[in-house]
């Protein structure tokens, strides 16, 4: 008859363990909650940053200013060159007059009053719309290299492209990712340490009990399972708390994005898969920590 312990028995024993050291258990659960919240928060921020970058990449535009001296032929060459790149959606070539017209509209009416027509800037320009798949920093760098190459083409005067902003954004995302990763690892490690210590304390305070169980014929598994479940339950409690915290942060962030940045984001701020990850991750972290503790301190 090789049967494991009944669930009822395991839960009663685990509850007993919680009652044995309620404070340490609470601290473990809270540390797991904080660690998971942080992991979740960074995941949330990065997930959404990637969304922003993706959206940005879809509506990139650059202006290629052509030298005054350029002939129709030169412009056609540049256009062909531009079209070669994948993701170039549309080209719109403006003559000097059309560009001037466009600028006039942008300028203030009052300012234009006494202004000479030739004082309004205007230059032949090719407006390029690109749909770039910006998944990483490399994609931005590649785009930058490409614009530099265009700059080198004869009769191109200048290329205007907000690459620096994009690069900065990517750099920020990358720093956030690194900090988030390091912090998450540190917090998760300390959360695991707390669970590890709680379980160790439980094992030490139940040495007699563990020995007796084994003497009356309990298998090592039977003796260990309540401790493992106790660890997993601490993780689960932490995950549930983390979910509540993240839910609140999510609402807070969403209103911030809407009201302050006036962005009507269509993408989800809290991906549903994260809920699942938390529900699996919390107990897994708790279980791993208690398994380490049990493996080290519970000899049967």
């Amino acid at each position: 008859m090789k049967r494991g312990p009944r669930i009822g028995y395991v839960l009663r024993q685990s509850a007993q363990l919680v009652r044995g050291s309620p404070w340490l258990t609470a601290v473990s659960a809270v540390t797991i909650a904080l660690a998971l919240t942080l992991v979740g928060l960074f995941a949330m921020v990065l997930f959404n940053a990637n969304h922003v970058l993706h959206d940005l990449g879809q509506s990139l535009s650059l202006s290629v200013y052509v030298k005054d001296t350029a002939t129709q032929q030169d412009i056609a060459t540049i256009e062909t060159r531009l079209k070669q790149r994948h993701g170039v959606k549309a080209l719109k070539t403006l003559t000097r007059e059309q560009d001037r017209e466009r600028n006039r509209k942008l300028l203030d009416k009052d300012l234009l009053e006494g202004l000479d027509e030739s004082a309004i800037p205007g230059q032949p320009v090719i407006e390029v719309e690109i749909d770039a798949d910006l998944a990483s920093r490399g994609d931005v760098e590649e785009l930058v290299t490409w614009t530099r190459a265009i700059q080198g083409v004869t009769s191109v005067e200048d290329v205007e492209f907000g690459a620096e902003k994009l690069r900065l954004l990517f750099a920020i995302v990358e720093i956030a990712r690194t900090i988030g990763f390091v912090l998450s690892v540190v917090l998760l490690a300390s959360a695991m340490f707390f669970v590890f210590s709680t379980i160790r304390l439980g094992v030490f305070s139940r040495r007699d009990e563990i020995e007796i169980l084994s003497l009356v014929g309990a298998t090592p598994g039977f003796v260990r399972v309540p401790f493992l479940v106790e660890g997993a339950l601490q993780g689960l409690a932490g995950a549930l708390v983390a979910m509540v915290l993240l839910g609140l942060l999510h609402l807070e962030l969403r209103s911030l994005v809407r009201d302050v940045y006036m962005l009507n984001a269509t993408w989800s701020l809290l991906p549903p898969s994260m809920v699942l990850w938390l529900l699996i991750g919390g107990p897994a972290v708790g279980l791993a920590a208690s398994a380490m503790s049990v493996g080290r301190y519970l000899k049967v």
């Binding site: 008859m1 494991g4 312990p5 009944r6 028995y9 014929g217 309990a218 298998t219």
Partner: peptide, 11 residues
């Protein structure tokens, strides 16, 4: 009860 619980008997 321990002596029976280790054998996985029902409550």
């Amino acid at each position: 009860a321990i002596a029976l619980e280790i054998m996985g008997l029902t409550r």
